[in-house]
Amino acid sequence: MKNVFCIGELLIDFVAEKQGNDLAKANNFTKKAGGAPANVASAISKLGGKSYFIGCVGKDPFGTFLINTLTKGQVDVSLAQRSDTFTTLAFVSLAEDGERDFVFSRGADKELTYDRRLSKLFKDQIVHFGAATSFLGGSLEDAYLRYLQEATTNNSFISFDPNFRADLWKGTENIFVQKCIPFIEKSHLCKFSLEEAQLLSGKQNIEEACSFLHQLGTKIITVTLGGEGTYLSTPSIQKIIPSIKVSPVDTTGAGDAFIGCLLKQLALATNLDTLLSNSGPLENMVQLANKAGAITTTNYGAIEPLPTQQQLDQL
């Protein structure tokens, strides 16, 4: 089984306890471990895979809480870094009109520095780039790009999830698109939401969007469609893989559970060319990943509801 290295942010999500109000009216918040790459690493480990988290948190109690959370979930944090800068925080609520109210206080995640030791560790393994904050500057952005080069030259299987956050890119979406292109060009697998696929391609039609993104270089595209399932696109497959029916209570982390489950299965695969030429195994992988994402929505939070392999096997 290949190791999966997940690079990016690990942060505190302060979630307003009383939903339906904007943050100005929220009084009580629940502390949750967050950050898409950390969620993906946790999903992989919970399913019995081997994941590493590469990111930076502060030398403060919140940073310690986050590292302890990943360690408890059997994610390898030996490559994580600690900074004197305070741990990154996010405050989230759902307003009455259904729009998310979001305040982001960026801190230690931007302090991640390049570690030359990773070059040898990446060889023939899986490297997942899934940081929402990776293109916002700081040494993280430089390290992110250098790790892409290292993964490319070391025959890594490269996975990319842009994790677009509209709140962070208002008025500068074109900059976000340009920064994503090198990763789409080099990745074997890209996971997009429908909004991301449309933004990055400039196409509204999902088939046209995927065709454009394939032309940039990526071979496998998954576009998550919520309860409808996932649109899978490769040189030989273009179809929706349906999901299972659940009663969702919190969709936080569903996409991370999906890509984590898919990467765990890919860590067991031996030949990418076989997956691309024979649609069956890859379709089955996506179908199982859909189940992982669906299960995660049936409880609150991003890490706690992640399914075990036993839960998936029982479905």
Rank of each mutant, 00 (worst) to 15 (best):
K245R: 03
S193T: 09
A292H: 01
E17P: 03
S119W: 00
P248K: 00
L262G: 01
T172I: 15
A197N: 12
G227L: 03
K120Y: 03
D250V: 09
F160R: 06
A294E: 12
C190F: 00
L10Q: 11
D161C: 01
I184P: 10
G63Y: 08
S83G: 11
L275H: 03
D167F: 05
N174D: 15
G226S: 13
N21Q: 15
S42G: 14
T308C: 11
D115W: 00
L272S: 00
T251D: 10
I12E: 04
L200R: 06
A267S: 15
A95S: 15
E17V: 10
Q311I: 03
M285P: 11
S243Q: 06
G138D: 15
E9L: 07
Q125R: 05
L23P: 05
T251M: 06
R106H: 12
V15W: 09
F176W: 14
I181L: 12
K219M: 05
V286P: 01
E207Y: 05
T234R: 04
T153W: 00
S83V: 15
R117H: 13
K186V: 08
G55W: 14
S201M: 07
L306F: 07
L145A: 13
G34F: 04
L288M: 12
F212K: 14
E228T: 08
A292C: 14
V15D: 08
F104Y: 14
A132N: 14
V77K: 01
A43P: 13
P281K: 00
L10M: 06
D60I: 09
A38D: 08
R117V: 13
N290G: 02
R117Y: 08
Y147W: 10
G227S: 14
L200Y: 03
E17A: 07
K59V: 06
L140Q: 13
V177E: 14
S277P: 05
I241H: 02
L306H: 14
L148W: 08
T71V: 03
F129A: 13
K203M: 14
S277D: 09
I184V: 10
C180P: 14
L89C: 07
G58T: 09
E96D: 12
L276R: 06
G301D: 10
T30R: 15
L112K: 04
C6M: 05
S193I: 06
L94F: 09
L189N: 04
Q287T: 04
L225D: 11
T113K: 15
K46V: 02
C210Q: 06
A151F: 06
R106T: 00
I12S: 06
K203G: 07
I126G: 00
K2T: 08
P182R: 02
L306E: 09
P248M: 00
A257I: 00
S211G: 02
S156C: 11
A36W: 07
Q204D: 13
Q314V: 12
L306D: 08
A43K: 11
L94M: 14
F258V: 05
E207C: 07
K110P: 09
Q215V: 01
I303N: 06
G301E: 13
G35S: 05
N68T: 11
K170I: 10
I184A: 10
K219G: 01
S83W: 12
V246Q: 02
Y144N: 07
G171C: 10
